[in-house]
Simulated scan of single mutants.
Amino acid sequence: MSDDVAYPVFRSPDPVLALSVARRLMMIGHGEYTNTCLYAELCSVAEVRRGAKELPEGWFRGQELSGEVDVPFEDLPAWLVGVRGSGLPAAATSYERRLPVEYELLDQAVGSVEDAFTTAIGPSPGEINWQHLCWPDAPEVGFRGESNHAEVTLLFNTRTRAYDELADDHTVLVHVRSVERGDREAREPYAQWLAGQVGLTIIGPGQRT
């Protein structure tokens, strides 16, 4: 079993520009099975409602309160388990102590949801992840192409994949398979080469989840 490592290669306060750059990088490895996944932690009722309007087909899940772990699953409010946008409660009071609301939409066609998500995300942390890419060979730096862990991620309003470093900008990550040799990543030069194909360069340390 292998893991991936993701390197930041671009950062901007402009989410539309960051999306454009991420798409250029993604197209290097775009293939037949490439798809798009969306994740977010929506931090206000306004952002939840905007997400439900723009991308209602996703799954929304509120936070459980202390003690609810002991409640039978069937007795929990449906939207704490996970509902589509149409199943969210209408009253703003229903969201008290339930934020952030987690949002997830998986395995979407490339180009079908990214613009709407970029519009809807607002200041909440979230990401667009393009998976099932196929990176090309890079013989000039001694690497064969790979499809395992070949991904691109655009982070919104955070600089880390764990969403634990919030920011006012947006970061593009290129993923490659992690191969550790001593205290270094043997495939970092490959990530650098991939970034260079669209005029980018690694701007920070690799990240793992």
Rank of each mutant, 00 (worst) to 15 (best):
V179E: 15
Q108C: 15
G67F: 12
E41Y: 00
G206S: 03
S147C: 08
L38Q: 03
K53G: 15
D3L: 12
G122S: 13
L99A: 08
G29S: 09
M27W: 09
G58E: 12
A186C: 07
E41D: 11
D115R: 13
E165W: 02
I121M: 05
P205A: 13
F73H: 11
D168T: 10
T209W: 15
E54W: 10
A6Y: 15
G85S: 10
A116C: 02
C37I: 00
G182Q: 07
E102R: 03
S20L: 07
G126R: 06
Q192K: 07
S2M: 06
P136L: 00
F73M: 05
W59H: 13
V83Q: 09
F10W: 12
Y39H: 08
G142N: 02
D168E: 14
R50S: 13
L25Q: 07
L166F: 01
G126Q: 07
G206K: 01
H175R: 02
A186I: 02
T36F: 03
E57M: 15
V5W: 14
C134H: 04
Q197N: 01
G62T: 04
H170S: 12
G111L: 11
V69W: 15
T160A: 05
G111T: 11
A78L: 12
A22M: 12
S20K: 14
F60H: 11
S66D: 14
A116Y: 04
